[in-house]
């Protein structure tokens, strides 16, 4: 098997999906993100790594404006999705989040059936014209999340009854069913065992074919396995951003080197 995951030339040809300029985030008086600039490419897996509390999750949550739900959070700078500033006053965060889906650290299936969990997004966004249409979307999403074969006979049982790894894949299917352009994943494997983790990682690799994936992880190995681009955050700063291979083999910054060699974090 030759290395398809990190073709140098392919990356350079891809379009920019998200571009962040001078992003600052404050929680009350405390500054959590300091002047971050980054370009995230389409149809690529980008990993955010760094020690805990470095701001990588905070920055991730800025992209689909999940920080809006926190009263004391304040954001400066601009984040553009396909050239449109997501913090523009005219932008409806609801519409934004339909385009930028999110998967969370802990699997959080709704207390509904497996089917209703996956159908939730398409229903609220009106993506299906009829029942058959919706069935199709659900099946495709579950297949896409590599869960179809495991749950096809019990679609109407509660989603909370699945195992941890299955629940997380259900949450991914739920996000995929909404047909996002970007999928944000906030440490999606931290609550999973190694087997479930490898299933989810395999899935992430497949998802890259349809849209851009941004994954926050505290595991450097995971970043190395799944991503083509890596951003290293430290104390609210974006220290280094580049091809995953380069970051792990020839880091430019001493802090990056200290982190990947295990001396900090």
């Amino acid at each position: 098997m030759y290395d398809t995951t990190r073709p140098e030339t392919a990356v350079s040809q891809q379009d920019t999906k998200i571009s962040a300029r001078n992003v600052q985030v404050y929680y009350g008086e405390k500054q959590a993100i300091k002047d971050v600039n980054v370009e995230i490419l389409d149809k690529t897996v980008t990993a955010f790594i760094g020690p805990s509390g470095c701001g990588k999750s905070t920055f991730l949550r800025c992209i689909n404006r999940m920080n809006d739900t926190i009263d004391i959070a304040r954001i400066e700078g601009e984040i553009r999705l396909d050239g449109e500033d997501v913090y523009d006053r005219r932008v409806d965060p609801v519409q934004l989040r339909a385009k930028v889906g999110m998967v969370f650290q802990k699997p959080n299936p709704f207390p509904k059936s497996i089917y209703d969990n996956v159908a939730y997004g398409p229903r609220i966004h009106g993506l299906s014209r009829n029942k058959a249409d919706l069935d199709g979307i659900v099946e495709k999403a579950l297949r896409g999340a590599a869960l179809w074969n495991e749950v096809k006979d019990r679609l109407h049982e509660p989603g909370t009854g699945l195992s941890g790894g299955q629940q997380q894949r259900l949450c991914i299917a739920r996000a995929v069913a909404t047909a996002p352009e970007v999928l944000l994943m906030d440490e999606p494997c931290s609550a999973l065992d190694p087997i479930a983790t490898s299933q989810v990682e395999e899935l992430i690799d497949q998802l890259r074919e349809q849209f851009s994936v941004v994954i926050v992880t505290h595991s450097m190995q995971q970043a190395a396995r799944v991503s083509q681009k890596t951003a290293f955050f430290h104390l609210g700063n974006l220290v280094e951003y580049g091809d995953t291979d380069d970051i792990f083999t020839k880091p430019q910054d001493s802090r990056t080197e200290a982190y990947i060699s295990g001396r900090i974090g």
Partner: peptide, 30 residues
């Protein structure tokens, strides 16, 4: 993996084309 690779449902494609700055009728009613 036996699952098929995902292909986007047609209805979603039209939805995606819209700009973030313009609200469609559905968003307005929601």
């Amino acid at each position: 993996m036996t699952d098929l690779p995902l292909s986007q449902p047609g209805a979603a494609r039209t939805d995606k084309a819209g700009s973030l700055l313009a609200q469609d009728a559905r968003i307005k009613s929601r």
